[in-house]
Structure formats: structure tokens, C-alpha cells
Design a protein around this nucleic acid. Structure first.
Length: 291
DNA sequence: GCCAACGTTGGC
DNA sequence: GCCAACGTTGGC
């Protein structure tokens, strides 16, 4: 081949990480622009900048991405959410210029070119999932009490099931638009996408399944999710931060320090809040404006 | 610093 | 279209 492959590039720097990034395949207007970006769009574009991410945690993850690392391309906020394709990081994090474009759907008036706050990476389209891997399937596997794979998916093995249970945030952290995926989970998803075999499974309760919206307030609808969410929430509230505390927070937040100096009351408090969240927060829907 | 209200995400 | 989940704001 011409130059070294993307995969090789990633290998040279220790064990690679795996990622999952979301995009919206359906049209949706934001500030007069369509933010739709489907697998078809991605395939046609071949490479695409992942602009518009406006969430600290998602941004921090993007900053960790190395050229050549692999990513799952996920269809979000649509009829059939799930993994549609495989991709690779083609360009490492660089300032997201759309943040200071006032006409852009994800314009952030608080950021300045001199001190970029939001970043993006470029992703290169790899291949479509031979079999689209529905979120419902991953959830089905993750929520199943059994360690053995469901009928038809024996090829996954108990470890494949375990990997999906433990290595994917999709089920428990639905709102995060950029996620880390374990190497094992990546392998399991690839196996699923290559092999299929879940057509006979009853993955999700069809809409017709009784409307149990009855229960007032209580989490009647989705026990597993509710439980997981509660856990996440409790964790967040406890502020037990410090998982991976990149060097991140310091360098790119000088601007916040200015704010702090300028106003001591309200804005100071807000500043602290934002800083705290900076290393854990969650998502911003990820989509991109077509160009 | 805690917590309720609010706004957005995103599955269904 | 509905509504659960949860990040974020802002009152106290």
C-alpha cells in the first residue's frame, strides 16, 4: 500500500481504544439547517469531520482518539437506532470551528477562536455493518439474566455476551453521544454485524404491547434502565469524580478562570459547576450539518 | 453545597 | 407524539 495504514498508525502508540459515535439519520432542522447524517451520507462522504459536539465528556473522549482507532457508527434518534457501520479516526482532535459560526446550528457564543473550547475529529468511513445491529438487540443481550447467548447467537459465546454487558455504555448511558467501547465489546459487535442470526428473536415489545404508562411517577416502564440510571445519578450526585482525570481540564479552561476573576458571585458558582462537569458530563446530540 | 425546576435527549 | 432520563441552572 501507499503509506502506513491507519490501523498501523494507531498500533504504534500502545493498545488502541475503541469508540462509538452517534449521528442522526433522519432529517431534523436546527436553526434552519438539516443536521441529518446517515450511514449513506457517511459512506458517500468517505471522511467527515465530527463537528457539533457540545458536551464536555464527549469532547474529552474525542481528544483521546488516536488516528487509526476504530469506531462504531451509530444511528440515533430514529425509528431503528443501532450500529450501522464501522469507521476509523482519520484525524485527531482539532478545534471545532462551527462553535464560532453564528449561523451554525451548534454555535456557541461563549467561545473564541483564540481559545477553542470545542473540538472535533475526522472519521473515515470503513464499512457498513453487514447486518445492522439494533440497539434493541444489544439491550436484549445486556439485560438478559443468562450468561449464555440467546438462541441463534451461540457463536457469540458467553464472553461475547459478557463483553456487551460490561463494555457498552449504550444501554446505561444512552445520552452520551461519544462513548468508549471495550475491545471485547467491539469484537462482539463486529461478530454480530458479520453474522446476524437474531431475526427470530423478539427483541423489543412491539408498540401494541399494552400501554403501561399508567403508573404515576414511579418507574413503571423500563426497570433495567431505570435502575441503571438511578445508579448513574447517584454516582453523579455523589460527585465521586476522578475516573480518568485527563490533564484536560486545566489547559483548555483558562477562559473560565477569567470569568471567575471578573465576577465573584453567580458566575463564579456557575463556573465551578461547569468545571466539575467538564470531566464527566454527558452528551449533546451529535449530528452534522450537510455541506 | 444541596436540591428542585427546567430543558433537551432520545427510545419507543 | 409521549415521556423517562438526566445534564444544567439557579434559588436558597
Amino acid at each position: 500500500m501507499a503509506s502506513e495504514s491507519l490501523a498501523e498508525a494507531a498500533d504504534t502508540a500502545g493498545s488502541p481504544n475503541y469508540w462509538l459515535l452517534k449521528a442522526e439519520p433522519d432529517s431534523r432542522m436546527v436553526k434552519g439547517k438539516d443536521v441529518k447524517f446517515s450511514v449513506d451520507d457517511f459512506e458517500a462522504a468517505k471522511t467527515s469531520p465530527w463537528e457539533g459536539v457540545r458536551n464536555y465528556e464527549a469532547r474529552n473522549l474525542m481528544k483521546e482518539m488516536k488516528r487509526g482507532e476504530k469506531a462504531l457508527f451509530y444511528h440515533s434518534n430514529c425509528k431503528a437506532p443501532g450500529i450501522a457501520a464501522f469507521a476509523e479516526v482519520a484525524k485527531e482532535a482539532y478545534p471545532d470551528h462551527t462553535a464560532w459560526d453564528s449561523a451554525h446550528p451548534y454555535y456557541d457564543p461563549k467561545t473564541k477562536q483564540a481559545d477553542p473550547k470545542w473540538f472535533m475529529v475526522d472519521l473515515a468511513f470503513g464499512a457498513r455493518a453487514k447486518h445492522f445491529v439494533p440497539l434493541a438487540l444489544l439491550r436484549f443481550i445486556a439485560d438478559a439474566p443468562a450468561a449464555a447467548p440467546p438462541a441463534g447467537l451461540e457463536y457469540l459465546g458467553a464472553d461475547g455476551v459478557a463483553a456487551i454487558k460490561a463494555g457498552m455504555d449504550l444501554v446505561t448511558r444512552g445520552r452520551l453521544s461519544v462513548q468508549r467501547v471495550s475491545a471485547a465489546a467491539w469484537g462482539a459487535v463486529q461478530l454480530l454485524a458479520d453474522t446476524g442470526g437474531w431475526d427470530a428473536l423478539e427483541l423489543a415489545p412491539k408498540k401494541k404491547a399494552a400501554p403501561k404508562k399508567a403508573a404515576a411517577g414511579a418507574g413503571a416502564g423500563r426497570p433495567a434502565r431505570a435502575a441503571a440510571a438511578a445508579k448513574t445519578k447517584a454516582k453523579a450526585r455523589k460527585k465521586k469524580r476522578g475516573s480518568d482525570s485527563e490533564d484536560e481540564g486545566d489547559d483548555d479552561y483558562d477562559e473560565e478562570e477569567e470569568e471567575e476573576v471578573i465576577s465573584k458571585t453567580t458566575s463564579s458558582r456557575r463556573k465551578r459547576k461547569a468545571e466539575e462537569y467538564e470531566e464527566l458530563p454527558t452528551p449533546t446530540r451529535r449530528a452534522r450539518a450537510k455541506t
